[in-house]
Computed example of a mutant assay.
Amino acid sequence: MSEEKKRFIQEFVPGKQVTLSHMIANPDPEMFEKLGIEQAGALGILTLTPSETVIIAGDLATKAANVTIGFLDRFTGSLVIVGTVSEVSAAMEEINRFLSQVLKYTPADITKS
């Protein structure tokens, strides 16, 4: 008796969206040390799909405000921006605006802690 082999094909088709947009104001200095990035007044954390969108978001952030990129991973869609509270806020607002209005992404509310 022969066994029939079944073949499964799985596909991941991400939507165009900002899945997380959070700003941490005045983080504990130890957090910067653990992340290996220079200390500043705020961290902006974003997760985007498709993951390559972080390249666009990083470019938008650094052009919109005086922030630096603390971390960017084009494979997971993770972006961390660093700067003052007002500059990180301005950069995150510009990322949401551009992605939603120009590229028709689904934005996420910018949350803060």
Rank of each mutant, 00 (worst) to 15 (best):
A64F: 10
A25L: 00
D59N: 15
I37E: 02
F75W: 06
S78A: 12
V18R: 09
I110A: 04
V88N: 11
L46F: 13
M92T: 07
V18M: 14
K5M: 08
N96E: 14
V13S: 05
N26K: 08
S89M: 06
V85R: 04
T84Y: 04
S100C: 05
T62M: 15
G58L: 08
Q101K: 12
T49S: 15
D59L: 05
S113R: 09
E30Y: 03
E33D: 08
T76P: 05
G44Q: 08
E4P: 04
E38H: 03
V80T: 14
V54Q: 06
K6M: 03
V67P: 06
D109M: 04
I110Q: 05
E11I: 13
M92V: 10
Y105E: 06
P29E: 12
G44F: 04
A40E: 12
I37K: 05
S89F: 00
L20S: 13
V88G: 06
L103T: 04
G83D: 03
A25C: 02
V80Q: 07
V18G: 12
E4M: 07
E3V: 09
P50R: 14
Y105F: 15
P107Y: 09
M92N: 10
R7T: 13
I56E: 14
G83P: 09
G70I: 01
P50C: 10
S86Q: 09
E11K: 09
V67Q: 04
E30R: 11
A65S: 15
G44N: 03
K34W: 05
S78P: 00
R97K: 11
S21K: 06
V18P: 06
K112D: 04
A61K: 10
I37D: 03
A61R: 10
I69G: 02
N26H: 07
I69M: 01
G41I: 00
D109S: 08
A42N: 01
F98V: 15
M31V: 15
L43M: 12
T111S: 15
I81W: 02
A108W: 08
I45H: 05
K16F: 14
D109W: 01
M92Q: 10
L46D: 04
D109V: 04
L60P: 15
V88Y: 07
S51K: 13
K16S: 14
E3C: 00
Y105P: 02
F32R: 00
A90H: 06
A25G: 07
D73K: 01
I55K: 15
V13K: 01
P29C: 06
E3T: 11
N96W: 04
P14G: 00
A64S: 15
A25H: 07
L35T: 05
